[in-house]
């Protein structure tokens, strides 16, 4: 008898799948990416994964994410992959990478930074990809991505 492959999260016809989100991070992703509206969203948590051991996944029907949304997800979960689905088939799959220049997506944690005092758009550069460290282009302070507040 053919082994039955159980799909724990339903397949979608068209839309975006964010796969290989490290387990436990999906709610943070959901929090930052605007998922309200007409589209169906499926979330899988703590699924078994050959690559990560355990993983989270999001499937969003009939929606392609904006570049900013993809960049935010890349910062939260650079291990994740972004899959675009058309007619139940994978049309593209890309490994996320943290952008070198991060415009307007991070709140600088430094209260003395001009971006907080004058309310101007923040700008960060990726200082270390391995250590996930970014540097504010204005006050020049360095922060770990996991410690900063993000905005979309």
């Amino acid at each position: 008898m053919k082994p039955v492959k159980l799909i724990k999260v339903n397949a979608i016809k068209n839309g975006t799948v964010i796969d290989h989100i490290p387990a436990g991070k999906v709610l943070k992703v959901v929090d930052l990416v605007n998922l309200t509206g007409e589209n169906s969203v499926m979330i899988g948590m703590n699924l078994t994964s050959a690559k990560l051991g355990r993983k989270d996944i999001i499937k969003i029907e009939n929606r392609v994410l904006s570049a900013d949304e993809v960049n935010v997800i890349a910062m939260l979960a650079p291990e994740a992959s972004l899959i675009i689905i058309k007619d139940f088939a994978v049309v593209s799959k890309q490994q996320l990478t943290i952008p070198r220049e991060i415009d307007g997506l991070i709140v600088c944690p430094n209260p003395k930074c001009i971006t907080n005092i004058e309310g101007i758009k923040s700008r960060f550069t990726l200082s270390s990809e391995d250590k996930k460290i970014v540097r504010c282009a204005y006050c020049e302070k360095k922060y770990e991505i996991d410690d900063v507040e993000m905005i979309v």
Partner: peptide, 9 residues
């Protein structure tokens, strides 16, 4: 200025 990043801005 005491505000950090003010000259860059």
């Amino acid at each position: 200025s005491p505000i950090e990043g003010s000259s860059r801005y």
